[in-house]
Design a protein around this nucleic acid. Structure first.
Lengths: 230, 230
DNA sequence: CGGAATGTTGAACCGTTTCAAACGGAGTGG
DNA sequence: CCACTCCGTTTGAAACGGTTCAACATTCCG
């Protein structure tokens, strides 16, 4: 999304006290059941939110990209109901939660930006449910690639044609409610049919329109346009 | 959830202009792709949010209970990315969107309550993803019943033992990413094993602890306690 | 009362999982 | 530089959970 924010609010946000940190791939930024006192923003790298079922199966429920505040939830709810884990080495900025909360109560513009951000996350979660609940494996994967491409393209114009994907097939499976084995087979089938190219380095999308069609994708739920936010 | 709200904020909310209406089962409160100018709150009855895939499969992404504001999303995002449809005849209260938006900008307490509400919805959506992505049909159904029981028990203490469930098996299937036929079989199997009793009138839960175990359920993600909201 | 919608059941089918074995590449230590 | 290990990928075969289709029973409702 592209939440509109006034220059003053933006400046005030930047004035918040913060410390920078680098965290390794695999380390946890939020752990289910815990209470945290700071708010972290991703500067570079990829993270994911996930939950573990009682049977020990993992389900990734969203991917976090650079620029996103990873724990808006902790701002108003106390104990975390899910985990956030770095998928790659990440640069993050850590903000004391209290000061961000204070900023949000002082400046209605910030509070509104937060609601809008959370609302877009919610919209994305709904689409994620549709994807897992009602689309077959191949379509699901194509859809996932489309979403990533569109969201990344806000950071780097070229991402609609190609982007790095530092996720193992196991992790893709956890994101899409499938096994790594089946991810492998369907990925191959997408490659065979020329819908994507797949390698260690990442994904190449030779023909955007075709992949969108294969993935039953539309970007409406991402509320990308500035006009889509009131 | 149980979002704390000051008496003054609460009073101001109640002073909002509104009109009451009754809508029939099946009618739409929000339609994907449309823009709306009012905000509706469910007073009685059940509604659901759903999306339709390109192949025409429907996925229900959440259930709305009495007392819930159905379209907080429309407050800050313009075009709806999903549908909201009445599952039963519903009494609703319609509030002009603009006046609620104004109230939220004037009273930070209201704005905070809105964020907290949306955050809890988001937490529920994440659990919904886990449920559909990683639990088998039987467990999924049990989990769904537990969630409903807990949420309803905030309106009516007795709901943990029994509640009305005005949903067809088709609709249950749409909610859980299954077919009506399979819902039927698994429902029977839950009944056979004494985990629930099922009839037109609703659900009876003879042994709460057992159903919770069967459904791999915990209410953490619902953030029920007043203390869980900051 | 009659017709439509919902629930129930069986049998065949299919998409995905499971298990197992082999392969490749990156990193480590001798 | 090779040998060794570890982790992720790849492939095949068999098993399984859930779907599909079709027929029939039941309930709801005008």
């Amino acid at each position: 999304m592209e939440v509109p924010i006034s220059p003053e609010d933006s400046a005030a946000f930047l004035r918040l006290p913060y410390t920078s940190r680098v965290v390794d791939a695999g380390s946890y930024l939020i752990r289910e059941g815990e209470v945290s006192e700071h708010c972290v923003m991703l500067v570079s790298g990829l993270a994911c939110r996930h939950k573990i079922s009682g049977e020990g199966f993992r389900q990734i429920v969203s991917i976090n990209l650079p620029g996103e505040l990873v724990d808006l939830q902790q701002l108003y709810l106390k104990v975390a109901d899910h985990n956030v884990q770095a998928l790659t080495k990440c640069k993050v900025v850590v903000i004391p939660q209290e000061s961000l909360r204070q900023l949000a109560t002082d400046r209605i513009g910030i509070a509104q930006a937060i609601v809008a951000t959370v609302l877009v996350e919610l919209a994305a979660a709904r689409e994620w449910i549709l994807n897992i609940g009602r689309r077959d494996a191949r379509t699901r994967i194509a859809h996932f690639m489309c979403e990533l491409a569109v969201r990344l393209s806000r950071l780097d114009e070229l991402s609609r044609q190609s982007f790095e994907l530092p996720m193992t097939q196991e992790q893709l499976g956890d994101a899409l409610g499938l096994t790594a084995v089946h991810i492998n087979r369907m990925l191959k089938s997408l490659v065979r049919d020329g819908l994507i190219e797949y390698s260690k380095r990442g994904i190449i999308i030779p023909n955007w329109e075709e992949l969108v069609k294969e993935g039953d994708f539309t970007d409406r739920y991402l509320h990308c346009d500035r006009e889509s936010v009131r």
